[in-house]
């Protein structure tokens, strides 16, 4: 065989321009996995270090002495830390809840507009997201000072200690940057919905508000949740904007954790319990997430059985 055809020019696969990459595949796959791992490691490195610090029995942070869990129960002993955690949670939960509800309705309102108008408003919606924190924080403070002065001149009966700085200003400031995130996440989902869906509901005599709650919101649920998550993240992570707009309400200081940490390191040392709290928050969320994913998978399997 070989002799007979050996005279013919035989084009190899290579000469056709085909290169065999299959041998490289395992290598590139491993490379890709390694690189993905490295990036994830980079993203989580600071969290890992905080976790290590929270387990250090010594409060000298430059060397590890022995593993100890003492900083965890100690969180409860640190009154100021507990107040700050409480304030953070109250502000972030209220702001997230309001931003999610309001943002969803606002997004529906914007979606009902003509395309051109909607685009103009979405442009403005991006300003709070992209604006520098320090500019947002400072300028909101200026406005709130004016509003505060105005309210106090109008309602002279208010006690001297009364002020809008505190819970109201913090929630408003957090709403300012949280609502746009909700709208951004809800809008694409709204576009994916069938426009006839709402019309059909309304034609069938469902009241407009009820139609939103019963028909539209279930359809855009994924966007609402994603928006809520982002709103909460931005709120809990915020330092600069809260810093300018914090204060006391109901006799309670509403300095959130970031502002409190910044204040404490001004003259004294930070208790390692702060690291313990951060670690707990991360682990708790990861566990909840994995649990959610597992329970969903189980549900899925049951369905298949049916």
């Amino acid at each position: 065989m070989t002799d007979r055809y050996s005279d013919y020019p035989v084009a190899t696969l290579k000469e056709y321009g085909y290169r065999d990459y299959s041998k490289l595949k395992p290598v590139t796959r491993i490379l890709k996995q390694v690189l993905s791992f490295v990036i994830f490691f980079g993203l989580y490195l600071s969290i890992i270090i905080i976790a290590i610090q929270s387990l250090n029995s010594s409060s000298v942070m430059s060397s590890f002495e022995s593993i100890s869990l003492k900083w965890y129960p100690n969180i409860l002993q640190e009154d100021d830390l507990m107040t700050a955690i409480g304030a953070t949670m109250i502000v972030s939960l209220i702001a997230t809840a309001l931003a999610t509800i309001l943002g969803t309705f606002f997004a529906i309102g914007l979606y009902a507009m003509s395309k051109k108008k909607r685009q103009q408003w979405m442009l403005l919606n991006n300003v709070p997201i992209l604006n520098a924190d320090i500019v947002t924080g400072f300028s909101l403070m200026l406005m709130f000072i004016l509003v505060n002065t105005f309210i106090k001149t109008v309602f002279t009966s208010l006690p001297q200690a009364w002020s809008i700085f505190g819970l109201p200003t913090l929630v408003l400031a957090h709403l300012f940057f949280a609502i746009p995130f909700v709208i951004l996440n809800v809008m694409p989902k709204l576009k994916e919905t069938d426009p006839n869906l709402m019309d059909a509901a309304l034609d069938l005599g469902v009241k407009p508000l009820k139609a939103i709650v019963k028909v539209l919101i279930p359809a855009i649920k994924a966007g609402v949740f994603a928006g809520m998550l982002l709103a909460f993240t931005m709120s809990i992570d915020d330092f600069v904007i809260s810093f300018f707009n914090t204060g006391e309400t109901f006799g309670m200081s509403f300095d959130n954790l970031s502002v409190w940490i910044y204040g404490v390191i001004g003259r004294r040392d930070l208790s390692p319990s702060v690291y313990a709290f951060s670690t707990l928050l991360t682990i708790f969320t990861l566990v909840a997430l994995i649990g959610y994913e597992l329970s969903k998978n189980r549900k899925g399997r049951v369905k298949i059985k049916k």
Partner: peptide, 29 residues
């Protein structure tokens, strides 16, 4: 909504229960 309302009530309840107070503006720790 319910949770938020409950929280607000809780906060105002806490604030009402206190007697005379001294508002101190201080350095940390």
């Amino acid at each position: 909504l319910l949770a938020v309302t409950l929280m607000m009530i809780a906060i105002s309840a806490v604030s009402c229960s206190s007697g005379p107070t001294l508002r101190l503006l201080n350095w940390g720790e």
